[in-house]
Amino acid sequence: MEKQLRLVGSARTEQGAAHRELSPEERQRHFRNVMGSLIQGAQDSWGDIWQEFQGNVVENVVVHPSAREGFTPACGWPEFLEKMWILKHHLDHAKRLTEKGSL
């Protein structure tokens, strides 16, 4: 069964209203909000990864001697590697946004 989709716009867009330019203060506020979200995501990912090491590999900052036998994450390797990838993703975007000429 086919379903017809239609694009829904705002009343301002349909009337052809021009978009206003953001002030420097508004741009700065938006930038801080985006960066805050990216950094929070990175911290959450790091916390998930660090939690995987707790108990089996490390106790706070001390590595257990049994860690020489190898490490297997409780969540499984696919999920653990996905968490690592998400952390990299957040850090890459934060770096890209803060580089000169990115805005």
Rank of each mutant, 00 (worst) to 15 (best):
I49Y: 08
F31G: 06
Q51S: 14
M35W: 00
I49R: 08
K88R: 11
L87Q: 01
P78K: 05
L91N: 01
R27K: 15
D44K: 03
L103D: 13
F53A: 06
G41W: 02
V63H: 01
G9I: 13
D44G: 02
L91K: 01
H19Y: 10
G55S: 11
W46R: 07
S37T: 08
W77H: 06
V8G: 02
R29A: 15
L22T: 05
L97I: 04
G70P: 06
A67Y: 11
R6I: 15
T13C: 05
N56W: 04
L38D: 02
P65K: 05
E99T: 13
G101H: 14
P24K: 00
A17M: 13
K3A: 13
R96Q: 11
H93I: 03
S10L: 06
D44A: 07
P78I: 03
T13N: 09
L103K: 09
P65C: 01
E2P: 10
M1S: 15
G16T: 09
H89A: 03
R32D: 13
V61A: 02
E79R: 12
Q40D: 09
R96K: 04
H90G: 01
F53K: 06
E99W: 04
E14L: 15
T72M: 10
A11V: 13
Q4M: 12
S102L: 06
E79H: 05
R27T: 11
F71S: 12
L7P: 04
P73T: 12
W77Y: 14
A74C: 09
R32F: 03
E79M: 05
C75N: 08
V58Y: 04
L87F: 06
K95W: 03
A42Q: 03
H89C: 02
